[in-house]
Design a protein around this nucleic acid. Sequence first.
DNA 1: CCGTGCTACTGAGACGTTTCAATTCGATGG
DNA 2: CCATCGAATTGAAACGTCTCAGTAGCACGG
Lengths: 339, 339
Amino acid sequence: MANPSIKEVAQRAGVSVGTVSNVLNRPWIVAPRTRQRVQDTIRELGFVRNEAARHLRAGRSRTVGLVVLDVANPFFIDVARGAEALADEHDTMVVLCNSDGDPHREGRHLDQLEQQRVMGILITPVRTDSPRLRSLVARGTPVVLVDRAAAHGGRCSVSVDDRLGGRLAGTHLVERGHRRIAFVGGPLSIQQVADRLAGVTAAVEEAGGVSLETLEMPTLSVAAGRAAGERIAALPDASRPTAVFCGNDLLALGFLQAMAAQGLRVPHDMAIVGYDDIDFAAAAAVPLSSVRQPRELLGRTAMELLQEEVEDPGAHRHRQVIFQPDLVVRESSDLTRAD
Amino acid sequence: MANPSIKEVAQRAGVSVGTVSNVLNRPWIVAPRTRQRVQDTIRELGFVRNEAARHLRAGRSRTVGLVVLDVANPFFIDVARGAEALADEHDTMVVLCNSDGDPHREGRHLDQLEQQRVMGILITPVRTDSPRLRSLVARGTPVVLVDRAAAHGGRCSVSVDDRLGGRLAGTHLVERGHRRIAFVGGPLSIQQVADRLAGVTAAVEEAGGVSLETLEMPTLSVAAGRAAGERIAALPDASRPTAVFCGNDLLALGFLQAMAAQGLRVPHDMAIVGYDDIDFAAAAAVPLSSVRQPRELLGRTAMELLQEEVEDPGAHRHRQVIFQPDLVVRESSDLTRAD
DNA sequence: CCGTGCTACTGAGACGTTTCAATTCGATGG
DNA sequence: CCATCGAATTGAAACGTCTCAGTAGCACGG
């Protein structure tokens, strides 16, 4: 009635369970006649392998967990696509988990994934070095950090040079003549955000005579960007920055909306540079300048490192891959393109 | 060394495996002293439950599969969030799978999910009634259709009245005086798209004296929308439609970009109405009018129906829940709001 | 006809958990 | 002191698969 097992297939086909298993896993060692008979029976009975049993037997599953900070951010979706593309080639499944920037949620997902004995975990952690993550690794689950460099050599990581990204944005704005710049970021406890700030700070300091003020928002969302925009728009003209560098594109989009709502023109009254260069950045009210990251490549490379580690843990040496971002200048920070 | 099992915990704590299992699952029946001792041992050894074994024993997993047409579409991400919110309350995990509109990919995901013996599957199927899905149900995996009404009473479904949505958009454009309207849609094999077209068609026919032309694109993506926009922009002024209704917001955003690139003003030269009202619609170059669907509620309700079915299959009666969409008018179709 | 070597197949054991009937152990009451 | 009872604990079976040592059968050469 319910799902037939390998045993029932064996019985019906008149062979042993071992033979059915062989048909499934190493068909070439089974005589063609037998193989055919078993395959027919499988179809007839509608037999479906029980992954849980395989998994229990094998000790490890064929699943990889991917824990991201925000599924609503298309940046992470692209990272996931990259990871999944490679996973497909390895007959592996990717489970996407959303921590939403909450360490507690992150912990819950890690628990679940560890209980599932996943092959490994790709994660953009909420905090840099949680003990939870450390114990995970200690107990034998390979972890690859995504979009964040590993502090120690204890694990692999794939990241983008966020300091450089911040510097690119800062230098660009300084070169366009801005002397009052604001940085709108998410919580500085997120390493990427802190690094981007450090980058823009360095660029500004080198330039000299340029002020940089920081607005730390609780999240990296469109709503937070809108709130930040409203606060900045409320400043008197004289003290209001003329350019803003946002910690990611969601913030930038929100900020842009606020500018429109408050009647400030972009880029005339306010230049904006975002981060990530998500697809929607180019489609915004005013096309957004943004620091581009190789999103899919990030995910794909992380999965590559993980597969490498899983396939030969002995030979594997942890590596820190760091990509370079580049700046895409569009209308939001370029007066020459504006009407 | 490796992950300790319940057996090693039992040994170390000087109890039987049954007792450890009881501490884990029904702690109240274990004497406090023993319970404490076992819990200490668990912590000491870093014991982590093996979900595969539980699952094998239990016969079914605590996971639900959610198969969507396009993860890059924020609409489905919101649906997923709604589903996950409820899943959390039931201590259930959601696995998000992306069919990308490809029946083959969809089939692969369904195979994987069935092998995992998931509790159930929430799916926006590529085609209306695939045999693959039917056999899944026949073999005992509960399926709830999402964003699509079930043709027969054989399963639950949660959907939005797409015909009504199309009608709202059509009526709106007709009322604004448009007499040449275009529908830009994804493949009409997708039921939602066909229904939206049917709705707008009905609205146009009722109005009389209004022409509707259809442009069927291969996908519901920003790129496809851009391509559609370029084709329509290339038409001579006299025969070019003055308004377009796009099958979803991604198409609409792409279409909007093409208008800007070709020098056509929105809404003056071309009015645009999208579908889904994703968050980015409001942040577009010209804020998009769009037909809004209760995205999270869609996911949450689907999960509710599934849980209901799983918890008491006997008492469960399949239901078709249908929500009403509504139209959000913004600048892209409203001359009075444009500068 | 026997030994050898091969191919094809068999069957038991193990993976880690849950469950449940069976057992042990004290305490209580007669 | 024995019978009884309840609480606490035990131990084995079962879930479905894979693996591996073993067996059967056959062909071939000597």
